[in-house]
Design a binder for these strands. Structure first.
Length: 173
DNA sequence: TCAGTGATTAGG
DNA sequence: CTAATCACTGAG
């Protein structure tokens, strides 16, 4: 097993997002126990022109991290209750991120952060150097197909972007 | 179907 | 300061 390095994340989000499927999300807890989860569902949010992307409204304290180099973590609270886990992609000044919507065992972006104890303290974490959260290559055979659908919960994004097939889900062969 | 919940943001 | 907006979930 090897940790994914910077070059994996500094590509366009539409390449990184489907590539994350089947990879392993690794979480080391405060008691030093380690758990690993297969990534099963993601969504891509792509730059200032994508009206569903938080960064499309410009740089704010919340979206700041998306303007940094790929490999960093973007975490924010939604509906007053749920932390959303995202990975920043592509180069500096190209605000893009992948939302992790599902992992094996916990389907749903709010459920997985609750179970992995991920909150705002992970904002800005670097997946390349962090000692509590990173991604590893899977040695499991890639026995799945990738299904694409429109993204969830972004009706406000306008016809063009809300219909983009930027949600990627693993499906058994 | 629909309420709960609070950070974030733009606008006075 | 105020009010609107939300990459959701679970109960009924």
């Amino acid at each position: 097993m090897s940790r994914l390095q910077r070059d994996f994340f500094t590509r366009d989000v539409l390449e990184v997002a489907p590539d994350l499927l089947g990879k392993i999300l690794v979480r080391k807890f405060d008691d030093n126990s380690i758990k690993k989860y297969l990534i099963t569902e993601v969504e891509a949010y792509r730059g200032h022109e994508d009206l569903a992307c938080h960064a499309s409204k410009g740089r704010t304290p919340r979206t700041e991290i998306m303007f940094h180099e790929g490999g960093h973590v973007y975490v924010y609270l939604i509906y007053g209750m749920y932390w959303m886990l995202n990975f920043v992609t592509d180069l500096k000044d190209t605000p893009q991120a992948v939302l992790i919507r599902g992992i094996e065992g916990f389907d749903g972006p709010g459920k997985l952060t609750k179970n992995l104890l991920i909150d705002k303290s992970f904002y800005g974490e670097d997946l390349i150097s962090s000692n509590r959260l990173w991604i590893e290559n899977s040695q499991i055979s890639k026995d799945f197909k990738i299904k694409t659908t429109p993204r969830i919960g972004i009706d406000y994004a306008g016809d063009i972007y809300k219909n983009k097939l930027w949600r990627f889900i693993t499906e058994k062969n």
